[in-house]
Design a protein around this nucleic acid. Structure first.
Lengths: 208, 208
DNA sequence: TCGCTGACTAAGCGCTTGCTCAGCATGGTG
DNA sequence: CACCATGCTGAGCAAGCGCTTAGTCAGCGA
């Protein structure tokens, strides 16, 4: 369908080397189908055909269609959380950290928009146990952002009246990028990240 | 399913009085099912049963399942555009107008989150002709926001480097509310609107 | 009383879905 | 050579899908 290398769509896709190549192709095909049509509108035949196999081959590598979604969603959330922690842990004060976080969070949701759509908009299709895992990861992300805002407010670098609302706004901006960003967008993911970083710092009342 | 009055979910749902009551019930059931499970995971039996009818009754009032989605999506988008125009046309300078716009846009996406989910996240399931109508309405909304930001920048009330990016951020914040807001959220739609209005004005560099 | 209409249902058609299973080619091992 | 594990296919099953059809029935004007 598209010739975009997977590395661009999901740089952190796990198992690219270790996993059997067929399983990897199935995962890749599932990501693109789920993102484009949604989980329920995607058939196992769609996925298998995109991966160049018969429908039955899917069940050699994955237990079910839902298991594919669970794997994508969990890996995607884990990658996002890692990215957030990485940005928060680095050097600098709260404002510097926040700028870096927004830049990377935003750029990721633009660059990996295909995975991002599955991760953010197909949660309702997850089996209950996979949903629980993913919900915990989402909570962790939210907590990291809240903690950073709180630290900035305590240090006098930010002026916020409601930390939770501000945290919601920050993550919200980034997540929604995966909805509207397309390969026809004129801004590169990195440009967009820088601009959003600027907007967020102002939103939080940082002097810049 | 829920006892929330429809007026709260979609205050502007058209035809509540004029339309045959059965057709209205079907529309209402479709909104709730599409929002909760998505278009493709919703069956015509789901909708009909929720409306207290047999599956066949649906086809007396609507041509197809997709026609129901089209009606919901078009009416929802028309209502949103009307709300935006209403806020922009009112009195005050760009900053006052923008605050009002964000307050109402945000509050609507919280209050009418059920319709909002269908409107914003089921676009891909629309038949092509209905999609064209809806896409035009979305473009109109984006243009209104962009124009207002441009006016504010020209009047020296806003400091923005990229109008399109800023406009994206403003609408993005509001739209994403329909994804995460639940009836367990502690902020009322109006409170959230006021807080988001504050954040957006700061983001746009308005002195407040 | 009558025929007619509009809203509705029970039954089910044709098709697609997720998934299974018997069997086949391949390549490494004794 | 035989033997088997691995990775896959072709065929197809049971269930469920959107939608249709034939028919019921209350209400109504003449």
């Amino acid at each position: 369908m598209t010739s975009t290398p997977m590395a661009d769509l999901w740089p952190t896709l796990p198992g690219a080397d270790t996993r059997p190549e067929a399983a990897y192709r199935l995962l890749q095909a599932a990501v693109e189908s789920f993102a484009e049509r949604g989980f329920h509108a995607t058939t196992t035949r769609d996925i298998a055909t995109s991966a160049g196999m018969s429908p039955a081959a899917l069940y050699i590598h994955y237990q079910s269609k839902a298991a594919l979604l669970a794997e994508i969603s969990q890996a995607g959330h884990a990658a996002t959380l890692a990215l957030v922690r990485d940005a928060v842990v680095g050097e600098g004060g709260p404002a510097v950290r926040m700028r870096r976080l927004v830049e990377q969070f935003t750029a990721w949701h633009a660059r990996a928009r295909t995975v991002g759509r599955v991760v953010n908009y197909e949660l309702h299709a997850l089996p209950e146990d996979a949903y629980a895992v993913v919900a915990a990861l989402r909570l962790d992300i939210e907590r990291e952002v809240s903690a950073l805002i709180e630290a900035g407010a305590a240090a006098g670098e930010f002026q916020v009246s409601e930390v939770r609302t501000a945290a919601r706004a920050v993550t919200s901006l980034g997540i929604d990028v995966s909805r509207w960003y397309t390969d026809r967008s004129t801004e590169t993911p990195e440009e967009l990240g820088r601009r959003y970083g600027e907007l967020v710092l102002r939103m939080l009342g940082a002097r810049i």
